[in-house]
Structure formats: C-alpha cells, structure tokens
Design a protein around this nucleic acid. Sequence first.
DNA 1: AATGAATGAGACTTCATTCAT
DNA 2: AATGAATGAAGTCTCATTCAT
Lengths: 199, 199, 199, 199
Amino acid sequence: MRKRPQQERSRQMVTTLIDATARCIAERGLDNTTTPHIAELAGVSVGSLYQYFGSKEALIEALVEKLADDVARGVKRLPVSSEVSLRDLVATAIRFGFAMLNASNGLYAELARNWHRVQTQKVADVLQQHFLEIARFYFLKHYREYPIEDLEVRVFIITNSTIFTMVRLVSQENSMLNEDAVAEGLTDMITGYLGQSSK
Amino acid sequence: MRKRPQQERSRQMVTTLIDATARCIAERGLDNTTTPHIAELAGVSVGSLYQYFGSKEALIEALVEKLADDVARGVKRLPVSSEVSLRDLVATAIRFGFAMLNASNGLYAELARNWHRVQTQKVADVLQQHFLEIARFYFLKHYREYPIEDLEVRVFIITNSTIFTMVRLVSQENSMLNEDAVAEGLTDMITGYLGQSSK
Amino acid sequence: MRKRPQQERSRQMVTTLIDATARCIAERGLDNTTTPHIAELAGVSVGSLYQYFGSKEALIEALVEKLADDVARGVKRLPVSSEVSLRDLVATAIRFGFAMLNASNGLYAELARNWHRVQTQKVADVLQQHFLEIARFYFLKHYREYPIEDLEVRVFIITNSTIFTMVRLVSQENSMLNEDAVAEGLTDMITGYLGQSSK
Amino acid sequence: MRKRPQQERSRQMVTTLIDATARCIAERGLDNTTTPHIAELAGVSVGSLYQYFGSKEALIEALVEKLADDVARGVKRLPVSSEVSLRDLVATAIRFGFAMLNASNGLYAELARNWHRVQTQKVADVLQQHFLEIARFYFLKHYREYPIEDLEVRVFIITNSTIFTMVRLVSQENSMLNEDAVAEGLTDMITGYLGQSSK
DNA sequence: AATGAATGAGACTTCATTCAT
DNA sequence: AATGAATGAAGTCTCATTCAT
C-alpha cells in the first residue's frame, strides 16, 4: 500500500508524456515532433521521458495504442441493435468518424496521414476487427450470408476507403466539398456495397 | 540559336535529376532520400542539383508533377467508348491502378504512403479531374443526370477510396487478402455506387 | 551500545554495495557499469548508494581496495619457506596469478585492463610490496645480496611484466598461445632474472 | 590531373583530423576525447569530420593504424646486423621504446593504457611480429635453435612485459624508480631469458 | 536514513544547403 | 556552369548525481 503513491505518480507521468506527445503531433505534425519538444510540453526533462519510454518510437507507439483503445471504446458504443437499419448504422459510424477526426484537434488526421510510419495499423486493425464483428452479427441477424472471406474483403475495402476519404477531406485546406455531402456519399456507397449479394 | 544546346543540356539535366530522385525514392524510401544521394545517382554534384532546383522539396515536387503527367497520359488511354459497360470501365481503371502501383518499382506506393509530405494531391487531382470528365461524359451518353456537385462528391470519394485501399493492400507485407478479390470488391462497390440514382 | 546495530547495518550496506559493484563490472564490463545498475544489483536505491559513497569513483576505489586486501591475503599464503627453490616459488606465484585471473569471473582481468581508470595501482602496489618482502627474505636466507634499490627495480619489472602479460593472454579471444606455456616462459624469465647477480 | 588538388586537400583533411585526434587524446585522455573536441582542434566542423570518418571509432582506428606504421618504420631502423650483441640489440630496442613513449607527448602511453578499447593490438602485433622476425634471424645466425612455438611464446612474453612495464613507469607521477635503471633491468631480464636454451 | 523520480549537460551523428575554386 | 568540401543546427539518447518525500 505504501507503494501506491509512486505507482500513481508513475502512471501520471506516463499519461502526461503521452498527452504531450499527442499535443505535439497535433500542433506541429509528426515530422516536427522531437523528444525535446515533447518533454517541454510535458513540463519535464528529456531524461524523464527516457526513463519511461525507451525511445521516441516507443512513446508514439504508446500513444497510438491509447488511441486505439479510445477508438475501440467509442466504436463499441455505436448502436448495433437489429432494429437499426443498415443505412443508419453506417451513417452513425461515419458521423462518429468525422467527429473523432474533428475533435482530436487534428491528431487522428495527422496520424492517419502517417499511417505507414506509426503503427496506425493498430487503430485500423481495431476498426476493421470491430466492423467485421458488427457485420457478421448484423448479417446473421438479417439472414443474409456472405462467405467469411468475402466479408473480410468488404470490411477491408470499406474501412480503408472511409478512413482515407475522410482524412483527405479533413486535410484539404479550402475544399469545395462539403463534409455532410461526403458523409452521405460514403454512406450511400457503403450501404449499397454491403447490400449487394455476394457473387 | 546559340542558346539551344544549353537549353537542351538544361532540360537533360532536369530530366536526369528527376529520374534519379524517382529511383532514390523507390530504392530507399522517401525518408532515406537525401540530396547527396540523388546527385550521386544522377552522376552530378549536389551543387548542380541546387542550380536546377532550389530545394529538395522543389525537386520532389517536380517529380510528382511529372508523375501526374504520366498518370494523366495513362488514364487518357483507358477505353471510354460508350459501348463499354460501366462495370468494365471501372474494372479496367482499377486494374490499371494496380498495374501502376506494382510497376514503378514501388515508387507510386511510396509516394502515396507519404502523400501529405509530397504534393501527391497533384496526382490525385489529376485522377479526380480525369475521372470526373469521364463520368460526365459517360453519364451524359447514358442519359442519366447527376447534379454536377453530386458527381464531384462521388468522384472524390471513389478516387480516394480506391487509391488508398489499393496502396494499403500493396503495402501490407503478409496480407491475407488477395489482390484480385480486392479489385473485384472495389469494382463492385464503385459500380454499385455510381449506378445509384442521386437522391 | 545502541549504535551498534546501525554500524553493523552500515558495514553490511558497504559490503553489499561493493559486492554489487564487483558483480556489475564482471558481468557488464567497466564501461557499462552504471550507478543505477549497481544499486539494482545491490537491491537498494541509488540514493542509498550515494549515502555511503560520494561518487561512483569512490565506490570503485573501495572495491579495488578490498580486492587489494584479498590479493594480499592470498599472496601471504604462498609457501616461502627457505626449503622451496626459487623456481618453485616463482612458478607457484604465477599459477596463483592465473588462478586469480580465471576465477573472479573475469573481474580482475577487467580491472587490470582498465588499470589507469581505476586505482589498480593499489593492487599492483600490494603485490609489489609483498614480492619485495619475499624477495628480501629469500635472498637474505640464501646469502645473496642485492642493493635494495636494485631489488625494487627488479620487483617492479617482474610484477608488471607478469601481470600484464597474463592479462593480455587471458583477454585474447582465440590466442594461439597456451596458458601453461606462457606460465612456464614467465617462470623461466623471472627465475633467470632473479638469479642473475647484480652488476 | 585536374583532380589532384582535391585529392591532396582530402588527404590533407584526413591528416589534419588524425593529428587533431592524436593531440586530443594526448592532452585530455581517451575518455575525454569527443568528436566536437577533435573537430575544434582540427579547426573544422563536426560535419567535416564525419565526411571523412564514419564514426569516432573509425577515426581512432585510423590514428592507431598510422601509429602502427610509424612504429613499424622506427623499429625497422633498429640495427640488427649479426655483429651486434644480443644485449646491445635489446638495449637499443628498449631505449627506442622509452624514446617513443616520451616523445609522443604521452599519446602512446595513453593508448597503451587503453589497449583493450582501441585496437592497440595493431601496434602490439606489429611489434611482436617484427621482434619475432628479428629473433628468428638472430638465432639462425647464431646457430641456436628454438622450436618456433617456443620463440612465439618468448616474444609474446617479452613484448608485453616490456610495453606495460615501460608504460606503467611512464604513467607513475612520482616514481621512486629511475628510467635508466628500469631500462637496464629489462635489458638484463630479456637478454637472460633469450639466452636460455629451450628446455 | 532510504527512496527513486527527476534532472540536464553533453555525446554521437545526419543532412540540406552554401560557396570558394 | 559545375563542383563537392565544408558547414552547423538539430535530433536522439545516456547517466552521474540530487532532492523532495
């Protein structure tokens, strides 16, 4: 019991550092995120940073992991009851996606932009996995059967299509395109695609 | 008339440098592409490189611009006669996309992975613009009318969805997913989406 | 009387720390020996370490001092009765030296390799001093007189020659040379040298 | 022919850097020798240093190699004609050794002190090899035969004994011992050892 | 007295860019 | 115009030591 305060302090430091990393990436971009910057934002010394994370990479990985958790939690709250129509389900998910993207102060977008350098796959995997489950559940309920492999392909396509279309839209400075219109378009496309019977 | 040889030499140098940049990025990735290395591959000095391009960024931008042209040329060769069914049109375009990605020694994939750092938008814009034209043309022929704005949204969604889904697939090391299956899935999705009447 | 337990505890702590230092150096080499690591091996905090030793250097010095004592004790047990021949005496000492070097888990060798960074002179001095005494005693017994200064020079030469020749041999990875052969050679050399009458 | 100036400049830079490294080690010791210090002493930027040497280690290695060459050259000039007595030969070699040690402003001594961290073996190997040759030559001339293996052991012992005895003497601050006396003692010891017939 | 989290100076190394030749 | 040696700011990471608890 005497060790608690230290553990808490430690946890606190970890949190602080991950937060600082998030802010740093959101504010300056992944390229300009340096360990001194992160430490400064966290209000600690570089040494401390390295006491908790063996490398810059490890720190970013921890951040991504945390985000993956956040996303998972958020995604799990989406309404998936069988009463909801497929279209509403998809529309909700997309609205949720845009909300995440806009809320995070650009963090998610910046990470998605750099998916090949960070382990964004962790987030993407979480999403894919979750949507795969939803899809299975949903189609089981609705008596429509896809071969599992086909469902995996569909979810892969849909997840990536949606993520990057949204990210590109959000990343454009003066887009002529309207977020709602794109959301609706995506919903149309996905709903249509999922509604098709497999060949 | 006396200036001609120099202009030719100049053009030659520009081409050589852009080629070297392309090879460098394809071979070592964007992160490990350095100006000295490009110069070495081009067989010229760094000084010369900076005589023709004010910065590394400018050089890469020029490369992207050239690629955009290449892509445009390739895309224009796609068969768009009104005899071709929509599905075949889309399928051909996607096959073309995968071919580009797999040829080019990974250059396109590497650039697409880093689209936010280079001006990949140039390539994407070219594609979007071209497909928009195709779409307009095609739908005019087929007596189906979308409001232009709707068509723009659709093309935006389709272009980005396709590009990044393909790039992610190509970038995965041991993907369980089959390229042909994904190509077919994308074709299904897009054809279905384009076939939907606007609300 | 109330202070005794603390003094004991203190002595205990000192011992523990020196032991940990020895283990650390033997296991990871002097270069990779860090105060946090020593503390960890000792099962105490760095803070405690600095309560007992003002600096890393002081700690290592204490270790060396302890080793010097150990060596002194070992050396004093060597048989020096006047019945033993000079050659046997030398041979025994050299065998003892190799034994020390090979035992100790490489600690002595590692310290000897770094003699200029630690105060190895303490160990060397102990050896020199002891061998000087032996030599004096021995030569007195055997009616042969060296001027004292000459004896000091001889002992200096012999001690250093032997130590470093042995250490270099032990440190070589794939030496072509055989330990026994070198031991015999050293014995020959030293015996011969000591047997020479001073000029 | 037009390339000559650059090659010379390059060679000049290499020399300058190696020299600076030598001075740095001699002045501040190997431990305090840092790439910034070396660059400063050389009057160039760190970047230049790394243009010529891939790492600090490589630079020091180059220095050691150069010293090995110097030593080899010096050693080859020692008089080895068969008219010279064994004793004179040894005495000359030892005088040469002390001269090197004293002349180099402490550089050789500092490197010898750190033999296990730098590739001092290169220098030691040169010495061993050379003395082995001298020994073979000498003993052939004088009709005395050692088995080659025995000669190798002897040369190994002698070389290391001499080097480290000299270095320790030179490294002692207020030694009671006289350099000449030690030189003579070493000469006695070695001459005696080499004069012994192999068992 | 003990703890161990925090510090921060300083080490090595890279690379876009410049400029004397 | 071409060259490529030289630059130096900036980045990542280590570790002896301190000090609040």
